Amino acid sequence: MTKRILIITERADVHADLVADRILAKGHRPFRLNLDEFPARFSLDLRFADGAWTGSLLHQPSGDTLWLSDIGAVWTRKPAEFAFDSEDLGAQEKAYASEETEHVLLSLLHSLSCFWMSHPIAARAAQWKGEQLLRAAAMGFEVPRSLIANRPEPVLQFRHAEGGDIIFKTLASPYLGADKVSPDECVAVGIATTRITDEYVAMIDGIGEVPCFFQTHIPKQFEVRVTVIGDRAYSAKILSQSDPRTVTDFREFSVAIPYEAFTLPEDVERRCIAFVHSYGLSYGALDLIVTPQGDYVFLENNPGGQFLFVEQLVPELKLTDAVAERLIQGAADGR
């Protein structure tokens, strides 16, 4: 019997929509667990006996039932807040319900023996950008000199030592918490990677509230987005220097800069794949700089990074197919 693929995400996830369609087109039936419908739209019947969990998860609207014994692969695509039958839960009631639901779900998931893209424990261990720099350097990547500080003096000293050319970037998220609050509570939508010019130095006292991350500015010839799926790496060349608005941060998606399919040097490609695998991950999205001298500089790896925008801009990189095929293969062989 063909094992099923469990996709854990939310309703508004185009990545999951497209991958699920490809999995269906290849003759397999995914089961989608939208966390923003869970547990309100699902029925659980899970039992522990004789040293094992058995049972099922029923999606009430569709009637689709997923038996634990049928799960061959899990794609942990996107988190979301849980949904409950009652919409008027008090603050403490909702806190208890959320904690208990998370405990049940993670207990279930962590008990599975199957293929993961990627396991929650591995993905969480891989997300810390400060540790990534240490690991990348140990694996032979060139890594920018960096500083973490919450006082002006070390930042000014670092800027002077780097010839006055440093950048600020966020570590957890560029959204500045905007995605964690309601629209009426939002005061800023985010911040891009920013060069610390004299204008910003005049405001440097503002870093006292939160530890801030700075790096030496690395001149760019172009940038590369490397998407590792299983044992393969798919690379896109990003000509970010072609427009002044994307010179420092290519993630200004309102600007139409060129993207091209790109072939990494073999040693760099092997290192990217090895870096992702070193965490026990089967997926990762790495950002690299290529300097005017042709050196490759590691910036970061996102263990759950978006891939659809890359495929839309470089259609020959069949990333959606690659994800679907890796999940199908993982479900078939269990690893």
Results as ranks from 00 to 15, higher is better:
residue 274 A to Y: 06
residue 193 T to D: 12
residue 226 V to H: 00
residue 197 T to N: 07
residue 249 D to V: 05
residue 238 I to H: 00
residue 176 L to P: 00
residue 315 P to H: 06
residue 75 W to C: 14
residue 111 S to V: 07
residue 7 I to A: 04
residue 217 H to I: 02
residue 327 L to V: 04
residue 149 A to Q: 09
residue 38 F to G: 02
residue 188 A to H: 13
residue 176 L to W: 01
residue 207 I to Y: 11
residue 196 I to T: 10
residue 227 T to M: 00
residue 216 T to W: 00
residue 293 Q to H: 09
residue 98 S to G: 05
residue 116 W to I: 06
residue 117 M to S: 08
residue 128 W to A: 13
residue 132 Q to T: 02
residue 164 G to P: 01
residue 238 I to R: 01
residue 85 D to T: 15
residue 250 F to N: 00
residue 297 V to K: 03
residue 57 L to R: 01
residue 195 R to A: 13
residue 85 D to N: 15
residue 91 A to V: 14
residue 62 S to G: 09
residue 119 H to I: 07
residue 283 Y to M: 10
residue 310 V to F: 05
residue 116 W to C: 05
residue 195 R to S: 13
residue 75 W to T: 14
residue 162 E to F: 00
residue 135 R to N: 11
residue 61 P to S: 11
residue 58 L to R: 14
residue 279 Y to D: 02
residue 209 E to P: 00
residue 273 I to K: 11
residue 101 T to N: 01
residue 78 K to Q: 14
residue 244 P to S: 05
residue 103 H to I: 09
residue 208 G to W: 06
residue 18 L to Q: 12
residue 213 F to A: 07
residue 323 V to H: 03
residue 228 V to T: 09
residue 220 K to T: 10
residue 315 P to F: 03
residue 217 H to K: 14
residue 26 K to A: 15
residue 168 F to K: 06
residue 270 R to I: 04
residue 6 L to A: 07
residue 172 A to I: 15
residue 124 R to D: 12
residue 3 K to R: 10
residue 189 V to P: 01
residue 180 K to Q: 14
residue 24 L to A: 12
residue 224 V to F: 07
residue 175 Y to M: 09
residue 332 A to S: 15
residue 286 L to S: 09
residue 226 V to W: 00
residue 304 G to I: 04
residue 80 A to T: 07
residue 326 R to Q: 13
residue 289 I to G: 03
residue 70 D to Y: 00
residue 303 P to H: 09
residue 197 T to L: 10
residue 160 H to D: 13
residue 240 S to P: 04
residue 298 F to Y: 13
residue 163 G to E: 06
residue 191 I to N: 02
residue 276 V to S: 13
residue 275 F to R: 07
residue 113 S to R: 15
residue 103 H to M: 13
residue 33 L to S: 01
residue 26 K to T: 05
residue 110 H to Y: 07
residue 228 V to F: 04
residue 15 H to E: 08
residue 313 L to V: 02
residue 320 T to R: 01
residue 42 F to W: 10
residue 107 S to I: 00
residue 159 R to H: 03
residue 259 Y to F: 14
residue 272 C to M: 06
residue 50 D to W: 02
residue 174 P to K: 01
residue 214 F to L: 09
residue 236 A to S: 12
residue 210 V to W: 05
residue 139 M to W: 10
residue 291 T to F: 09
residue 226 V to A: 05
residue 225 R to Y: 02
residue 191 I to F: 00
residue 180 K to W: 08
residue 215 Q to H: 06
residue 36 D to M: 10
residue 8 I to R: 01
